[in-house]
Design a protein around this nucleic acid. Structure first.
Lengths: 159, 159
DNA sequence: GCGTGATACTTGACACGACAATGAATTACG
DNA sequence: CGTAATTCATTGTCGTGTCAAGTATCACGC
């Protein structure tokens, strides 16, 4: 597989003037491409990336969670969660339970069907992980994660 | 600003079993967050990220381009471009011109208004670039770009 | 010329994400 | 108490992304 620097990949005539710009574009482009790949995998199982994320978060937590807590762990804004849960509920992958102590909060719970689907996806997801970045060494992966974590520390607060 | 490894940031109970998974999640999360930030900036100018991307590509090319060529440089599927161009045309930021030699292809062209808007955005965009990852050293930025480029080389063909 | 297939877009149906505004339940406080 | 502020969730609107299907044009073979 030939080397394909971003500059050539997007057919940019001029070299990047600023390393910040180049890094940002690389992050955005890589994120988009990987997102697309996972989206296609999940679609084979009748799920979108967002839906899978909700299910994965719920399984990781191991207990029913309020909508807001789920929204916090995804990048997304709160209102998006409602529709997301709606569609998952239609597919009978989650159930809503209004809390008795604070009747404003709605707890979301995985159904056994969802646990089964998640289990079916574990193998393919890990396979895709390896397909996408299995050619990087353990040291490179660690360095990449480290740099991205450091990059996110520059995010201004207010979101 | 406190260090915030991904494991803690998403409140994951268990450490990551696979460095591949950790790296992928870091890429996706960082990409999403940065995408959100830029989306908010562009919205102040009445644009979405996709719309800005189309305009930036057209300016970079410096000449009218067929729809398909634009679609190629974005991650997106062809049908999405039509609607995107429709809305840009409504805002009088691009113009459509059907080619005379091959009447199937439609050339998209920047309007002077678009050039002005792009110029207005150059400063803020570069400021945001620096805000987001200005705290990384030049060496780190270079290393990050290098690793992401290498990561994308693992993308299977067919898209 | 005249099919036949390929190419370049367009359209329509549906799901999603971001935002603003609203409703409903709870808490704070004078 | 009782009103105000806050919190949790939902709804509606817009732009977008995806797929499937359709239209217009071109290129080729006969």
């Amino acid at each position: 597989m030939a080397a394909k620097p971003l500059q050539q990949e997007i057919k940019k005539k001029q070299p990047f003037e600023w390393p910040e710009q180049e890094a940002i574009l690389n992050i955005l482009r890589t994120g988009d491409q990987f997102q697309n790949r996972f989206g296609r995998l999940f679609r084979q199982y009748g799920l979108t990336s967002s839906q899978y994320n909700v299910l994965r978060i719920l399984r990781g937590e191991g207990r029913p969670m309020p909508c807001l807590e789920i929204a916090e762990r995804m990048i997304q804004v709160v209102p998006a969660i409602t529709g997301l849960i709606d569609r998952l509920e239609l597919q009978e992958l989650v159930a809503r339970n209004r809390a008795t102590d604070d009747r404003r909060v709605v707890y979301i719970e995985l159904t056994p069907k969802a646990v089964r689907v998640l289990g079916d996806l574990d193998g393919p997801v890990q396979d895709l992980n390896r397909t996408l970045i299995g050619h990087l060494t353990a040291r490179e992966l660690k360095e990449l994660s480290h740099l991205l974590e450091k990059a996110r520390q520059g995010m201004p607060e207010e979101t």
